[in-house]
Structure formats: C-alpha cells, structure tokens
Design a protein around this nucleic acid. Structure first.
Length: 571
RNA sequence: GUCCCCAUAGCUCAAUGGAUAGAGCGGAACUCUUCUAAAGUUUAGAUCGAGGUUCGACUCCUCGUGGGGACACCA
C-alpha cells in the first residue's frame, strides 16, 4: 500500500511517524501530510521552509509510483501518484480479482455477534448485531485473520423461568404424557412469543407470577428433568427459527455457544477471584471492586449465592482465551452494555485471564422511530421478515418494468429481487456508524435510489452489461491514453480500497466500506454519463475504459461482499 | 446524584485535528433516436449554546442545554 511506502519515505528523511490523508480535492494530491507543520512547531521554524527542505531531502530512488511532490497552503506536503502507478492499480485489480485489497495478517480474532435471546422474537433490533458482526468478521477474514465467529445466545437465566412457567401452566397443565409430547414437538416461535408477551401482561395483575418464574428457573438450574426437557424444546424451536433467518440473510456463524454452556464453569471463576483476593463480601453478596478505575463494583454472586451475567461473561472470557488464544476479542452488543463490558474487561485483566489480548466492545445504538422510542412491549416489535418481504416486493415491481431484466426467468428475477431487498436492509444499517441510534424508516429501507444498496448494485450491473457487450477484453489498460478528470477520480478511489478496508477493520466501522463503495459508484456513474465505453473515440480510449470498467465492477463486488451484500449481474 | 452514548441542511446520515463541512431523501428546474433514467446535471439549505487549547476545531478540554442509557441481586 502506498500509504506505508510514503510513511517509510518520510521516516527515512526525518525519523518521524506521520499520518497521511487522501485529500478530497485532487489538487491537493493523492496523499497529503501535515508533518512539516508539526515539525515546524517543535523547532520554532517556518512550516513552509521545513516542508521545502524535507521535500528536497527525500530519497525518491526506485519509487516509480510517485509523481510530483509539492508544498502547499500553510505547509502541507502533497504527493501525486504517477501515471504509471495508476495503470498499475488497474492491472493489479485485474490480476488479483476478489483478492484485491486483501491482506496476509497471521493473527486470530474472535468476533461475538448476533446473540439473540431464546424464546423472544428476532426483531429488527437483533439485526444490528448480526449485520455489523458479520461485516467485521468478513473484514478481518479479508485481511488474512483467522476468524472465529461466535453466536452467544441468551438461553439461560430467569427470563427462561418465565417461559417455562407459562408453558407448563397454560399449555401443558392437566395433559397426558402423550399430549404433552405432541404439544412440545409442534411448538412454534409464535407460540413462544405469545406466551412471553402474555407473561408480562398478566404479571402486572398477579405479582406472584414473578416468584413462580424464579422457582421454575431454580428447577432448571437444579437439573430438574421436567424443566430441562421443556427448556430443550424451547431452545430447539428458537434456534431453528434463528437458523432459518440466518440462512435467509446469508449469515453464517461458526460456533453456537450459549450462556447455558457456562453453567458448570462459573464456580471456578468465583474460586479464582476468591483465591487472589480480588472479590469480597458486601451486604451478603460477593463483589469485585475496581480500585482506582472509576468503575462501580460488579457482582459475582448474589445474596442467594446465584451467579450473574458478569460471572458468566468472565467464564466466557476465560474459556475463549484458553481455547483459542486470540489476538483480538471483539464483542458486538447494544450500547446499554457498555458499563458491563468495561467491568468484564477490567476484571479479566485483573485476574489474568486476559493479558496481551486486545479486548474490544463494539456497541451499537438502538432502532428508534422518528418520534422516539421503539416500544418492544405489546407487539410493537417490527418483524424482520415483514420488512424483508416488503423490500423484496418493491424490488420485484421495478424488475418487472426493467427492460434489461426481461430475459431473466421468473426464478432469476426472484433471486435478483431478494438480493436487492435484503441488500437494502443490510445497507441501511451498515451505512451508518454503529454507535448511534438508527431511525427505523420504511421509506429509507425500501429506497432503491440515491444512497442505497440498489444504486450500487445497479452500477455494478451497468458495468457487467458493458463488459458483456464488448467483444474482447484488452490485456492491459493501454499506455497511450491520456485519461480524463472523471477517469482519474475513479482510479484514485480504486487505489484507496485496500486502505479503507484496513481502516474499517481497525476502527470496527463497516460504514467506512459502505461510504467508500457508494462514492465509487457515484464516480463511475458520473463517468458513465460523460464518456462512452463501447463507442469511445479511439481504440486506446475504448481499451482503457473497458479495463477501468472491469476494475470498478471488481471493487464494487469486493466491497459489497464485505458487507454481505450480493451483486447480481443484471437487474 | 454519579458515569456513559448521542447532538451537523426541513428529514436521515458522512467528514484519522487540516485546505472550500460532504452525500442521500424531500423542494425547485433540466437531460432518454446514445453502453441499463434503479442514472446524470443545475439550484436553495447546516456544525445545540458559552468559554478554552491550537498555525488550524464538527472533531480535543471545561461549563451548560436537550435526547437516550447504565449504575447490587434482569441479561
């Protein structure tokens, strides 16, 4: 990557770490650094002077990617890439194809994401973790990391007492053994949702239900056969539902390790903390303080001796680090868990479960309506499939009118409609930085114009269409051709892709990739409107533009695939 | 009460401390005998407030205002 080369170049000259930016304005070069401003400040000199001196001392031997280097403004040093290098970018893409931009990091990362709750519906809220997590997984894999994706569903804890209570009271009571089996076997996710919502409504009138639920969970913890059997059915029904949704969304998570998995592993954690004197008794509970860290203490054991999710997550950390020895652990959840993970990470380091591992909590904001809160109670949940179905329908309608899709079979059209509908849903989420709340807006998700997945997919299809109509692909981009402003802009953008992928991974921000690919598509569409590829003025121009078009299609595909979005050939 | 997240155009979002704060939607006006008009062009429109640090602040610091969340027996 050029950024690294330039860094080395400056390092050789002044022994300083520098950062580069890619200026929006092409007049400011392809890369720019403010190093002279920083140095001038330190040395009390004139920044432009410092910049000039630095530029003249650069050892440019053998660096044929570099064009002119100039000092501008208050003392920026602007680097322009050479024509030769621009052509090389295109041939690299042609050669490396889906590998263009990828890396060879030999590190290992665990990404925990999705993690829905058993017995609750998979709403739009859970979608965020699934999509962001999957995109991060894809990104790190692309950079060469060995990725371990973990789905950590909430399949344990008092909420499950509620559903156990509901099932046994409402559906199973007074039934014969055979009937009970039948009922459990034919249980649907909708049944579970109804029972769960029903519990909260009824518990308002009858507070004793909460106590009953606790008793049921206690039974489950005590390995009561009956409770266990019902729980397993609930778990199965939920997981089947989730799997169905994952496969619909084209999401694949390597491991399914739920909270229940750590049931037997928490005693050990409590012992570890006791042994090292890192936890103490307080008001009958057992807590871990964080001296000097401005964190409130976290609870390891409740007064009744039961564990908490803090205990569970510590067991989880210990297990993961021992089993996989990762370099990075990234956990994707809602932002309401920020404090919790600060505590878990700190405690993991205190106790020594984690040492050199980089622990990252990637948190996302919640879905909201424009008016305010999204009330998940009382059936206000928006069902994922409802949204998707509508998105797909809308795409179908447009495909029906599309001239170029005319030759497609109904099955193919359906496939394209799905790619567009699901892509739109994913893009709507990933275009935004994870941390903020996200407004649930039907119009925006269903939007097929402007900044949307469909716009980018459409641009890809345009490229593919041109390439198919061209009789032959040129071997290289034609040296003789002097490219235009629009074409230069596209190459500059293509060159940025490997760096964007790295920045997005490093900052855990898939939205950088989404922004990038939209920008690329926009630039190609601008080019498309001003230049003809197949009817180009000269042979050289045609060859160059075909080569460029091919490169754009490839990089759009690489980018969207990082986001988990498909690129149909025609639409 | 303490801590955390957020605040940018009418709406939804961008912008590793950099050069003229970018897009999309919506509004107004245009461009299909021309490789896919799901496109393109033109146009109006914004950094919550007050201080501070800096050559330079949407970005960093302090104090406010507004929205959301967490803070011992829910996860």
């Amino acid at each position: 990557m050029i950024r690294e080369e330039l860094r080395k170049l400056i390092w050789k000259a002044v022994n300083e770490e520098v950062s580069f930016e890619r200026p929006e304005n092409p007049e400011h070069g392809d890369y720019s650094t403010n190093i002279a401003l920083v140095l001038a400040k330190k040395q009390g000199k004139d920044p432009r002077q410092v910049a000039e001196t630095l530029v003249s001392s650069l050892d440019r031997r053998g660096l044929d990617f570099l064009g002119k280097v100039e000092v501008a403004g208050p003392g920026f040093i602007n680097f322009f890439l050479s024509r030769k290098y621009f052509l090389k970018v295109l041939s690299s893409i042609a050669k490396e194809k889906e590998k263009y931009g990828s890396g060879k990091e030999r590190k290992r990362i665990i990404v925990e994401y999705s993690s829905p709750n058993i017995a609750k519906p998979f709403g739009v809220g859970h979608l965020r973790s699934t999509l962001i997590g999957q995109a991060l997984y894809n990104l790190y894999k692309f950079l060469g990391y060995e990725c371990i994706g973990i789905n950590y569903p909430g399949d344990w804890g008092t909420p499950h007492g509620k559903i156990l209570y509901q099932l046994s009271e409402k559906l199973l009571k007074g039934k014969s053994e055979k009937e009970r089996k039948e009922i459990l076997k034919s249980l649907t996710p909708q049944d579970l949702e109804k029972l769960y919502v029903g519990f909260h409504e009824e518990a308002q009138q009858d507070p004793t239900m909460e106590e009953e639920a606790r008793i049921w969970f206690k039974k489950l913890e005590m390995k009561d056969k009956e409770a266990r059997m019902i729980w397993e059915h609930i778990r199965r029904v939920s997981m089947e539902e989730f799997e169905r949704i994952y496969s619909f969304l084209d999401v694949h998570i390597d491991y399914l390790i739920g909270e229940s998995f750590f049931e037997g592993k928490m005693k050990e954690v409590v012992e570890d903390f006791k042994k090292k004197g890192l936890a103490h008794e307080s008001h009958g509970a057992f807590i871990v303080p964080f001296p000097g860290e401005a964190l409130p203490p976290a609870m390891l054991l409740k007064t009744d001796g039961a564990t908490t999710y803090f205990t569970r997550d510590l067991a989880n950390m210990k297990y993961r680090i021992q089993r996989w020895k990762p370099d990075i652990i990234a956990i994707e959840t809602g932002n309401e868990q920020i404090l919790h993970f600060k505590q878990v990470f700190s405690a993991s380091k205190l106790i020594g479960y984690a040492t050199k591992e980089k622990l990252v909590h990637v948190f996302h904001g919640l879905y909201r309506t424009q008016e305010g809160k999204f009330s998940t109670r009382k059936g206000q949940t928006v069902h994922l499939e409802e949204v998707l179905r509508e998105a797909i329908e809308k795409a179908s309608a447009i495909i029906g009118q599309s001239e170029t899709a005319r030759g497609l079979s109904p099955e193919e059209k359906e496939k394209v409609a799905r790619a567009i509908g699901i892509g739109g849903m994913k893009y709507n989420d990933l275009i935004q930085h994870p941390s903020g709340d996200i407004i649930f807006d039907w119009a925006k998700i269903l939007n097929l114009k402007g900044n949307s997945a469909a716009y980018i997919q459409y641009t890809f299809a345009r490229c593919r269409s041109i390439l198919k109509k061209a009789e032959a692909m040129p071997r290289n981009a034609g040296d003789a051709y002097e490219f235009s402003k629009e074409e230069t802009e596209i190459i500059r953008t293509l060159n940025a892709f490997p760096e964007v992928a790295r920045d997005a991974a490093e900052r855990f921000s898939p939205n950088l990739v989404a922004n990038f690919v939209f920008d690329l598509a926009q630039k190609y569409n601008l080019f498309y409107g001003t230049h003809s590829v197949l009817q180009a003025e000269t042979k050289e121009a045609k060859e160059f533009r075909l080569f460029l078009t091919q490169a754009v299609a490839q990089v759009i595909k690489n980018s969207l695939s990082l986001l988990g979005i498909q690129t149909p050939e025609r639409m």
